[in-house]
Design a protein around this nucleic acid. Sequence first.
DNA 1: CACGGGATCGTCT
DNA 2: GACGATCCCGTGT
Length: 207
Amino acid sequence: MVLDKIKRLGVPFFQRDDVVQISKDLLGKVLVTNFNNIKTIGKIVETEAYRGPDDKASHAYNNRFTERTKIMYEKGGLAYVYLCYGIHHLFNVVTSKKGSPHAVLIRAIEPLEEIETMLKRRNFDQLKPQLTAGPGVMSKALGITTAHNGMNIMNSNSKIWVEDHHIIIKPKDIIESPRVGVDYAEECASWNWRFRITNNKWMSKAK
DNA sequence: CACGGGATCGTCT
DNA sequence: GACGATCCCGTGT
């Protein structure tokens, strides 16, 4: 049966220690939300890695532990959703083992299914890359908000999950560049931890 | 197309 | 009290 080939990502994927590798591996995977029985689906085309304690761009730099960041210290496979600039809901997946505050920011998807629903959520009347290119607008198109912070996206009954459709992205087809909006992060600002699929028009433009 | 500023509020100091 | 892992719209070219 064809459906058997579509696998929801779980512990073996998210609880590895190398968040940079996980960020790259998420390219080509398929992000799904299912709210009100409507499944909006998109292929991940852009991610960023945030490596907790030693990464000045991470909310968990130097093991900073607050009400907001505590979820990053949980086991890999949980959602970390926070509000940015008072407006935008940014969706991350916590990775590694409990106690290791690593996370991947999902920055853009290529819309695949229920595009009408995504257009409606964004008040767009026609399909263009701006619909889902950028972490804030992607979340809006998928209906993700801070209400979903802490959700276990590996559970078979969760409303957010990631599937493996066996789309292979070769290393040479991955653009590695500095992360967006982290100029304050000193030497970490130059780390090439933003990952995009070469020649994909659905990734975000910013910088 | 590039740039500049305003929106808007939770989080941390 | 300041600012941010952003976005949108207006202006000018």
